[in-house]
């Protein structure tokens, strides 16, 4: 009679987050700042991606007391990350009662071949993707929300743009593909035919698509929204900036009114001379330092 954890209910929470900003936070105080600025959800973690890069070593699911403290500090949904393929970490987070689980390339992968079977969980999952095939594979595994991967902790928007364009271009191409091409296209995408056929018919993903990985300014957020993102994850961009409160609010305003340059202008101006986080040149990174290629 009462059904929890249905596809509708899991995808539904992501639908409620559309048009919003989800912020990485590492303390209850950060979470309160994020909520006050207008975040629709927070991602609770021990270190923001830029610091995970700096510290090195193996990055794992965050300490439970830290996540619990953040859940108690805010009324908005709380997400938390597990390592790719680490279904036992996911079982722990489901038991804890977080609202969304991010199976994330930002943490060190636990399984270099397989992702978590996300259908097996009541708690919904969000997963990263660099292209449409990757997005559809994650949805086939049960992901209820997709985010473009970008390059987390880089402060550089170029990878997020590349991934969002790749996904958008592939969707547009499929939506006009003749029926006889779908089997071969599904093979080339490495995705199940039924999802490919459904997407070709509807012209959109069956789940909400956010962007992530590199958003550092209000204009970055407006750019990603105009490229087709339905919302924005901001990791290091807020709490690595010189003035997190102002950056948080400005990025929310620019995301809400991404199509109105006057509002985005005001959001940029509101930062005064505060500096955004310093960024990394992706081309200067070693392959081992890149996060996006983890999981495929």
């Amino acid at each position: 009679m009462e059904s929890t954890g249905t596809v509708t209910v899991k995808r539904g929470l992501a639908q409620m987050l559309k048009g919003g900003v989800i912020m990485d936070v590492v303390t209850p105080e950060h979470a309160a700042i994020a909520q006050e600025a207008g975040a629709v959800a927070v991602m609770a973690l021990e270190r923001i991606p830029a610091d995970i890069r700096a510290v090195g070593g193996v990055a794992r699911m965050s300490a439970i007391d830290l996540i619990r403290g953040i859940m108690d500090a805010v009324t908005i949904p709380v997400m938390a990350k597990v390592r790719i393929g680490h279904f036992a970490e996911a079982q722990v987070l489901q038991q804890l009662g977080v609202d969304y689980i991010d199976e994330s390339e930002v943490l060190t992968p636990a399984d270099d071949k397989y992702h978590v079977d996300k259908h097996a969980f009541t708690t919904p999952f969000v997963c990263g993707a660099r292209d449409l095939g990757e997005a559809l594979r994650r949805i086939a595994e049960g992901a209820a929300m997709i985010r473009s991967k970008g390059e987390a902790g880089s402060g550089n928007i170029v990878e997020a743009v590349r991934h969002m364009r790749a996904i958008g271009d592939a969707i547009r191409e499929l939506s006009v593909a003749p029926g006889e091409e779908l089997v071969s296209r599904a093979r080339d995408l490495g995705a199940p035919l039924e999802l490919v056929a459904e997407l070709a018919k509807n012209g959109s993903l069956p789940v909400v698509l956010f962007c992530a990985g590199g958003v550092a300014t209000p204009a970055d957020a407006a750019l990603m929204m105009q490229l087709g993102a339905e919302g924005v994850f901001v990791g290091s961009g807020i709490f690595k900036s010189k003035d997190p409160k102002r950056f948080a609010r400005a990025i929310v305003d620019a995301t809400t009114h991404f199509n109105e340059a006057s509002v985005v202008l005001e959001a940029c101006r509101s930062l005064g001379i505060s500096e955004a986080m310093s960024g990394l040149d992706i081309r200067a990174l070693d392959e081992a330092q890149l996060l996006a290629p983890r999981g495929n």
Binding site: M1, S3, T4, G5, D99
Partner: peptide, 15 residues
């Protein structure tokens, strides 16, 4: 009362 029926794991479909 907000979130009165619970967090996401308690989200449901009901007749």
């Amino acid at each position: 009362r907000r979130n009165a029926f619970g967090r996401q794991n308690e989200s449901v479909e009901v007749e």
